[in-house]
Amino acid sequence: MTINQLSIFIENRSGTLVKVLDILKQSGIQIIASTIADTAEYGIYRLICSEPSRAYQELKDAGVAVALSDVFALELDNEPGKAADAVRIISDADISITYMYTFLWGGKGILIFRTDQTEKAHDVILQHHLSFIDENDLAGGGEN
């Protein structure tokens, strides 16, 4: 029900983002989705990619401060209002979302979110028959 996400410490200094992207390029890692928020001094660059374990090791070996974490990935029909419906269910269950982002993948909308209440989120997703993807789906390259 969860997928691997890379969280990379990015200092707000020119060149740091390029350095990370170059490592991924040289390792032949494909980025599926990524997001970074702007902050004064530094930010966390979060990304979903092919072969996250290998990507993690390549970055770590190059001295990049990187963490591998599990995030929920809901699969939504690509129609208006679907994100609202899904987030309402999570919200009604009193689960607080640390951060969230969405992207299109294989004709479907993917909603990534992180919460500290993993077990509760797990139960809610099953109870409400929410569609989700996992690491195996991603490895398939979006041909579902």
Partner: peptide, 13 residues
């Protein structure tokens, strides 16, 4: 100072 270990938690930083 260099950060060696990554984290997904902004607050932790």
């Amino acid at each position: 100072v260099e950060l060696a270990e990554g984290t997904d938690d902004y607050k932790a930083l």
